[in-house]
Design a protein around this nucleic acid. Sequence first.
RNA 1: GCGGCCUUAGUUCAGCGGCAGAACGCCUGACUGUGGCUCAGGAUGUCGCGGGUUCGAUCCCCGCAGGCCGCCCCA
Length: 430
Amino acid sequence: MSTLKAVRGTRDLLPPETALWNRIEATARTVFARYNFGEIRTPIFEDTALFARGVGEETDIVSKEMYTWEDRARAQSEKTQTLTLRPENTAGVVRAYIEHKLGETGQLQKLYYIGPQFRRERPQKGRYRQFSQIGAEVIGPPSSGSESPLRDAEVLDMLASLLDELGISGWTLHINSVGSSADRARYNETLRAALIPLAPQMCVDCQRRAVTNPLRVLDCKIPEDQPIIETLPKIVDSLDEESKNHFAAVTAALDMAGVPYTRNHRLVRGLDYYTRTTFEFTHGGLGAQNALLGGGRYDGLSEAIGGPKAPGIGFAMGEDRLVLTLQALDTLVAEKGHAYIAPLGEGMNPAALALARELRRAGLTVELGEGSFRLKKSFETAEKVSRRIVILGEDELASGILTVKDFATGTQTKVPRAELAAVLAAPANA
RNA sequence: GCGGCCUUAGUUCAGCGGCAGAACGCCUGACUGUGGCUCAGGAUGUCGCGGGUUCGAUCCCCGCAGGCCGCCCCA
C-alpha cells in the first residue's frame, strides 16, 4: 500500500519553524494594532462569482488557478452553487464590508487578516498551492477620507516599519501609479502601438507579450531587451491630472516621513481591481519569486461586486516568503526552556511531576525527565532543551534542598525549594 | 500548462550492471548521583513508485509521482 503524503504544493510546518511563523504573526498583530487596525476573519471559501467579478475574469488567477467545485444541492428546491477556495483575501474583505454595511458607519474601516489562500500553480520555492498571506485593507466611503493619498503613504510607512521590526533587512519598496481603469486601457493601447516596430528585435516572449498582454513586456528580465524597454512610453504620461496629483501627494508624504522608496515605472500589477497607487516590496534572497508583498489602491472594487462607492487600499504579504527570507538571514535562534527536571530512579517520578507542576504554575518552561534514565543521559538530553538541570533524588526530596546546574556556566548550586522558581527564572549567571 | 535538473539511513550526501556506504545524529557500554571530550560496540534502508532490458538493476531504458530551477503568473 502506498503511503499517504501531503498533496502537491502543500506542506506541514513543524517546530522549530512554527516558532518563527508565530513570531512573524505576533509582530504583525502588534504593528497593525499601533495603526489601529482590527482583525477580520472571512471564510476560506466563497461564491465563485465573487472572485470572477472582483479579481477579474481574465486574470490568470481566476481563469486557471482556482480550486472550484460544484456544491451539491440539499433539496430539490435548492440550486447547486459554485464555490471556490479563496485565492486571495481582498475580495472577501470587501464582500464582508458590503454585506455588513460597514460603510453606513461613516467611519474608515481598517482591517487586517492572516490566513491560508489557495492557488493551483506549479509549486516551487516560495510558491505553494496552499500559502499564507498577511494583509490589510483600508476602506470606507469617500467622506471618511478613504481616497486620501495620506492613507496610501500611511500603509507604506506601516509596512516599512513592520519589515524592519521583523528583522528583514535589504528590502526595496517599488511604487508606481496605474491610474484609473480608463488610464490603464489607454496606456495599454499606447504601448501596443509603440511595440509594433520594436518587438521584432526583442526576445520571443516579448514578441508574444506585445500582442497578448503588452503590459507584461515591462516585466521582461532579458538583459538585451532592457535598453528597448527603457525607450517605451511610461504609464505616468497616460494618467489624468487627478491621478498624477494623487501620486505626487503620496510620494511627498513618504519623503517627509522618511520612508525610502524607488519610483518604478515598470511596476504593473496583475489583478484587475488595482487603480492609482501600486506597490511591491521585494527582497533579493528569494529568487524568481522575489516579491515579499504587493498591493495597491482599488477604488472601484466595491462597486464591481455590487456595493456602494468605497475606495480603498490594501496589500498582501506572502508569509511563506517572509519565513524564507528570515531563515536565509539566519535570525532563527532556538529558545531553550528554563529547566529540565531529572528524577533519580523511577521512584522519584511522582515527586518530579509535583515539582514540575509547581514550577510550570510559576510560569516557567519545564521539561520533565524520566527516572529510569541514567544521570549521564539526563544531562545530555537536558543540555539540548534547557538552560539548567534540576536533580531530584532521595536526598533532595528529604531535605527540600535541590541541586541545580547551570549549563551556560557549568556551576552547580544547592537551592531551597521555596527559592527554586526565582533562581530558575533568572538569566544565566555570568 | 511548458522546459531543464534531481529523488539512496533520522539528516546531509557519496557510490556502483554482481553482499548497501560515509559523516553527523541515535542506542549500548567503559562510567550505580554529574553531561559536553575520548574509546569500544550497535541499529539504521521497499536505494521515490510502476514497468522494461538483463543470468542479475539502486545503477541502463520507458512511464508516473514528488522536489528544485526557469517560463508563465504572483504573495
